[in-house]
Write a protein that binds this DNA or RNA. Structure first.
Lengths: 219, 219
DNA sequence: CGCCTAGTTGAGGTAAGTCAATTCACGTGG
DNA sequence: CCACGTGAATTGACTTACCTCAACTAGGCG
């Protein structure tokens, strides 16, 4: 369904922004392979990572629609994307109103992820927060066949996790140790392995409903 | 433009949920008067307020699109709304593709607000966070003619602010005192008054770009 | 009058931050 | 082939921002 929207394939190397805070180009991407992250930088140079993106995710929809992008997007690994241009999106809306609903659903799901992230940072302590976040990533990866209840391949560093969770890298490390010692998760060598998935979801109070695994409503 | 979408007017009294976490009704609202807030409750009963809503805001778009609502919405004061039903929205998309773009823009702006809120909670200390948040509310109210650089009428309690900012009510109180003593803002008797707007924006590192005051792009 | 909610302040505890040193894996160039 | 530099992870010692508990005030309303 989304294939028709996208003409050009592109590649980006790790670390070089695809979208830059303040830019006003009207382009978005569908992530085909690799991981990316969207983030904001505050004026005193601190970084808050808003979300990580995995294959299948729509990137930069918000930047495309607002006059100037409120955030940056950076590949975490080398990535491949398909480019989506605003005029093409508009044309597609005219041809297929249901597509508009599907895009709106995707945007809503994105927002639901950010909202849950806000709950993480606002109302869970560091250990629950980390556990919840690793479970969410796992659940999202499972939807695209890249993970299981056993775990998943994860190219993130502890620094990236810390910047996502509003923690210092040092504390992120300590928390990961505690979770490892409690045999809940092991984060090591590019893999996340769950010790006991059930205890883990209980510990993190993880309820994946907000990920809306069923796809857009076809009203 | 949005008027055609909405048939029924309704009123709700303060404190009684319009939308309930877990519900699956497909209805959204446009807020005509009063304030509301959207929030999530964690399993151990803590509340994170995700956003406050002021007249002109679209409420519950996300609940309408996801199969089951990930959050609740509660009036902070008595409110008046117009009801928007999903089938009506779909019909309107067929008639006017640009409307789809406008709704998508509104959703993106909402998400931008939540993202900035995440930056507040993840990367700013309590005082900056409070200052930033009060400035954002002011900027949004000014867009609908309900505030100025001098300040605005604000029906929130310190408890509500605390639950929005991920603070305890006690600490919210202390922070408000500090801001008052620094002559930056006074939060009292239902009014927010800015002491020195320029110093305030500087202190809070407030850059309103993300609020995208110009409205949807008409591609 | 008495209760309830909102706000205020103090004292003391704790989760998480900062600074700093160390290890390890890796790549690169002399 | 080894010396070196660099980024990631690890751990310890100390500091601090924020929390919790608790007591008290002030206004609104039955």
């Amino acid at each position: 369904m989304l294939g028709a929207l996208s003409k050009r394939r592109r590649s980006f190397v790790s670390g070089r922004d695809l979208v830059h805070q303040g830019q006003s180009e009207q382009v978005a991407y569908i992530l085909m392979s690799g991981w990316a992250c969207s983030y904001k930088i505050t004026q005193d140079g601190e970084r808050q990572i808003v979300d990580f993106h995995v294959p299948g995710d729509f990137l930069g929809l918000r930047s495309m629609l607002l006059h100037t992008s409120d955030h940056s997007i950076e590949p975490v690994t080398d990535i491949e994307v398909r480019e989506v241009l605003l005029p093409d999106l508009m044309d597609a809306f005219g041809d297929a109103p249901r597509l508009a609903l599907a895009i709106l659903w995707a945007a809503s799901r994105d927002e639901a992820v950010v909202v849950e992230h806000l709950v993480d940072v606002g109302r869970r302590d560091a250990a629950e927060r980390m556990a919840h976040f690793l479970l969410e990533l796992g659940a999202r990866l499972r939807l695209v066949g890249m993970g299981s209840e056993a775990g998943y391949a994860c190219p993130l560093t502890q620094y990236l996790l810390a910047d996502a969770l509003g923690l210092s890298a040092v504390h992120a490390n300590r928390v990961l140790r505690k979770l490892r010692e409690a045999d809940l998760v092991t984060f090591r060598d590019g893999f996340v392995r769950f010790g006991n998935y059930e205890r883990m979801t209980e510990f993190a109070q993880f309820d994946p409903t907000y990920l809306d695994q069923e796809g857009p409503l076809l009203a």
